[in-house]
Design a protein around this nucleic acid. Structure first.
Lengths: 364, 364
DNA sequence: TATTGACATGACATCGGTGTCATGACACCG
DNA sequence: CGGTGTCATGACACCGATGTCATGTCAATA
């Protein structure tokens, strides 16, 4: 690879002059500039980041760690990995600022984190983004002594700046949409109760019910989260059995996420309950692979991953540009929109005699 | 950040001796070593990658580009992004070798590629992995003049080393499984005919039929790919209508991918056809979010993304270690396994009167 | 005309490591 | 006892940029 000396020699100037052409930080005569540029192009010269950052003490690098699971007893990692959207949008923002994002994925093994951080330190990263795969608290296991850090999709107890999804607001808006469609008996199949998202969304669910003057009924709420385990669908079956066998059968089901809604679709069909005619179903996440691909397409609340990644990156850049700026004490919460699709309709009069809608089929 | 001079001063030795302790490339007395190590730990010293690579002319960096779409007239990018698995496993392998992976995502905009490559060049990456989001040809739009490159999930016309999924073998094995289950009339809802995957899988489908002595029937094959467009499900509806209304109704449907299978589940249900009792359905990809989350879980052929990423990374590392090694003229094809789940069963005698299984739920 | 200042450019040191070579202290050998 | 080899260590240069300072030219000004 050509160096600045090669360029200087070819252009018949000093290396310093080449540097001036590259950086435009001092006047260079038109003739000189042109011959330097010609030499650069002829040699395919690209300045060395290593040499530059050595002199300037600025690496222009931002590290991003994703995929760590902080303790073994958490739910297994979902296979979907939507946090990729966070990474993509963070990268777009970082790139705009002229910095480069160094991305490391732990592949779910926390024990790799120290080695990744070490690599980041060797590269003298100026800041760190830490992206969790779902909304959760993290222990302070990052050996980041003084490195400006922004947490994304997670938070710690030390007040590290964090960007989080507005789970409560999302579930509120979604439940509100279900209520507005006319439903009064709204079941909720939640994710694992220990999850932060579950706790917050439950608040949103209750707030929307309360606002509509609907009494909260705990027997309509079932935790239903065993992703990736063999009994995965069994819990859903059981919950749906209970719900369908009630005399006051609910007319809508909120699901903890789109994946769960996908399972619910299948099981409702097996039970002969048509979606959405006999049962409205809504999800959460707006994982478009599912929400658009399911038939009928799924009404759901978007998890604003793109906005979160962009916001986190911008927050970090702001901190770097302005180190003594006061840090907001509270996490930044990004809200997502309700995506209206076909799985949510007004409740229809219940009629045990023809609950089975089967287009074109007449066996009942 | 402490430098090697700080460490040397604190330990009372020369910087060169600290270097020797760090690299273990020359004998250092026990006492000296210990005081150097103590100084390193006290200062939290981490050697600078920039300074090292400047002297050694080795960056130990590998670049990876993902997410580029090479021309506007291709199908829209699916929202699933399973190529993340390729990136993860590539990173695991690269890390093992002591090198660091620089990852850049174009966010689907080809016009960003030159700028990303430029950044890679500034960092003096030693090799390049180029990961496409689905199996396809790419134009030689990478300005990589001499940089060792391995293509993943794509190939070009210049014989650049490439690692590809064995689409033909996967579809062959899957169709074979359907045949072995007893099916003779096997429909195939393909992805866009222009896609490389479609072409190869069709070969596998036909090969399996031929081997079983089943005549290929073009009227059982329907292209059904409009992902992300409003008419997405309509094509599937139409195809299924045609298939179900045939006198010799097929007993199994192969779908171009898991997402399509998800749509097929919903539409079959609307048509009153139970899966798998009246119609077996198989997908492709083993996108576990879908294949495990669907009810009933989906039999499908795995796209071996993890193996592809690892293999590509290893191929690149081998080339770097051994630059004059002959390059295999043909792409490396990685085969995936058929994942047997519940959506494929033996065909059952067709009986209009009791095809619908309901609330008894005895089969689960 | 001598002085001043703007402009264009180069010499040199430096960033933080490591390769090369030199040096001092010993032990061993004849 | 002088010569030789090994071990442990340091001095110094260098990788490829750029900041600092100096220098040479030329036109405007006193």
């Amino acid at each position: 690879m050509a160096t600045i000396y090669d360029v200087a020699k070819r252009a018949g100037v000093s290396p310093k002059t080449v540097s001036r052409v590259l950086n435009g930080d001092a006047p260079v005569s038109k003739d000189t500039r042109e011959s330097v540029i010609a030499a650069i192009e002829a040699l395919g010269y690209v300045p060395s980041h290593a040499a530059r950052s050595m002199k300037s003490h600025r690496s222009n690098l931002i590290g991003l760690i994703t995929g760590a699971i902080s303790s073994a007893d958490e739910v297994a990692r979902p296979a979907g990995l939507p946090e990729l959207f966070i990474v993509q949008s963070a990268q777009a923002v970082i790139e705009t600022s002229g910095k480069t994002l160094l991305i490391s994925d732990t592949g779910g093994r926390v024990d790799r984190v120290p080695s990744l951080v070490r690599t980041f330190q060797e590269h003298r990263v100026e800041g760190l983004l830490y992206v969790a795969e779902f909304h959760k608290p993290v222990e302070a296991h990052l050996p980041v002594n003084g490195l400006p850090t922004v947490l994304v999709n997670c938070f710690d107890e030390r007040g590290t700046p964090a960007v989080l999804p507005d789970d409560e607001g999302g579930q509120y808006a979604l439940t509100r949409a279900v209520v507005d469609a006319g439903h009064r008996k709204i079941a909720y199949l939640t994710l694992a109760p220990a999850m932060e998202a579950t706790r917050l969304r439950m608040k949103g669910y209750r707030a929307a019910l309360e606002e509509a003057g609907i009494a909260f009924d705990p027997s309509l709420v079932h935790p239903t989260d065993l992703f990736g385990t063999p009994g995965e669908h069994q819990l859903v079956w059981d919950a749906i059995d209970v719900l369908l066998d009630r005399p006051d059968r609910p007319t809508a089901i909120c699901c903890g996420n789109d994946r769960l809604a996908m399972s619910v679709y299948g099981i409702l069909r097996k039970r002969g309950v048509a979606v959405p005619e006999e049962m409205s179903v809504v999800g959460f996440d707006d994982h478009r692979l599912i929400s658009e691909g399911l038939y009928p397409p799924l009404t759901t609340a978007a998890l604003p991953y793109n906005a979160m990644g962009a916001r986190a990156a911008q927050t970090l850049l702001d901190r770097l540009a302005n180190p003594d700026m006061a840090v907001a004490p509270d996490p930044i919460r990004i809200s997502g929109q309700v995506q209206h699709r076909e799985s949510l309709v007004a409740p229809q009069p219940h009629n045990q005699d023809n609950v089975i809608d089967l287009t074109g089929r007449t066996e009942r």
